[in-house]
Simulated assay, not measured.
Amino acid sequence: MSLQAGRRILREINSINHRFIKGMASQTGDDMEGLDPTQVELLAEQCIVVDEQDRKIGADTKKSCHLMENINKGLLHRAFSVFLFNSKNELLLQQRSDEKITFPGYWTNTCCSHPLNFEAELALDDNLGVKRAAQRKLEHELGISQDQVPLEAFQYLTRIHYKAPSDGKWGEHEIDHILFIQRDVDVKPNQNEVQSTKFVSSNELREFIDNSKVRGIKITPWFGLITQTFLYPWWKNLADIERFKDQETIHKLV
């Protein structure tokens, strides 16, 4: 895909997002009281609802997909997690802003979000839909421009199915597509999304996570699961990461 075509798709994505956000005004009420207005607007986005085999069965708002009352009834949606490494083989971490509705202030991998329910991000061939969503959110959350993270640079590895409550009301229940990418990028965080970032070596990450409880550092559950299960062997083999690709398996970690 050409850069011009990619930018056209991104403009279409942003236009669709804007229409969803405008529609959120009618959905805000007492249950949204005290939450950040920008984050509340994003709750109108249409996530892709899937079954346990990651087959689309419908769509619902980000709000509906993240309410524990719906999660406890089995509502499941598609997501992605990006792990971005620089040329020094260091991993970019982010600390989620305190304005986030789920897991505010938690440290996590580079970018974690959802493909949305429209054609560009529903595409399954070569995992193109989640890769387009990853481009979109890397720019939205971290200010990383599309040309710095071209679609062909993303490597899809596998999927995990997990469930995690954030508090009594909100949580996550996702089939999470894991994407690796190695690029040197310019990071300009959107403070409403990300309050801090840092690059770490694998040894630094081990120490960071091992000492997190003592230091009062919070780690997102999906990042913890991916780190415990997969991350370090993959990290050692960034030059040959494609051999770890597993298109068929969904690892159930709930």
Rank of each mutant, 00 (worst) to 15 (best):
S2A: 09
S2W: 05
S2E: 12
L3G: 04
Q4T: 13
I9G: 00
L10I: 12
I13A: 13
N14Y: 06
S15T: 12
I16K: 14
R19D: 12
R19A: 08
R19C: 03
G23L: 01
A25V: 08
D30A: 11
D30K: 14
E33Y: 03
E33V: 11
Q39K: 15
V40A: 10
V40C: 12
E41N: 09
E41Y: 09
L42V: 03
Q46L: 10
D51E: 05
E52Q: 13
Q53V: 06
D54P: 00
I57Q: 06
A59T: 14
C65F: 11
H66S: 15
M68S: 07
E69Q: 13
L76C: 01
L76G: 01
V82M: 01
F85R: 10
N86P: 04
S87D: 14
N89A: 12
L93S: 04
S97A: 11
S97E: 02
K100F: 03
K100A: 15
I101D: 02
I101A: 08
T102Q: 11
Y106S: 02
Y106D: 02
Y106R: 00
W107Y: 06
N109M: 15
T110C: 10
C111F: 06
H114E: 14
P115Q: 05
P115N: 05
E121P: 04
E121C: 03
L122H: 02
D126C: 10
G129M: 09
K131Q: 13
H140W: 07
L142S: 00
I144V: 15
Q146S: 07
Q146P: 00
D147S: 12
Q148F: 04
Q148V: 01
A153Q: 14
A153C: 04
Q155L: 03
L157Q: 06
Y162G: 07
Y162C: 10
A164N: 04
S166A: 14
K169N: 07
H177P: 00
D184T: 10
D184S: 01
D184I: 07
V187I: 15
K188E: 01
P189D: 09
N190V: 05
V194K: 01
K198Q: 14
K198S: 07
S201W: 02
S201M: 11
N203M: 11
N203G: 13
N203L: 14
N203W: 06
E207V: 10
E207H: 13
I209K: 02
N211P: 00
S212G: 04
S212L: 03
R215N: 15
W222I: 13
W222L: 10
F223L: 09
G224C: 09
P233V: 11
W235L: 08
W235R: 08
L238T: 01
F244S: 01
F244M: 04
F244D: 03
K245H: 06
H251D: 08
K252E: 10
V254S: 09
V254A: 03
V254M: 11
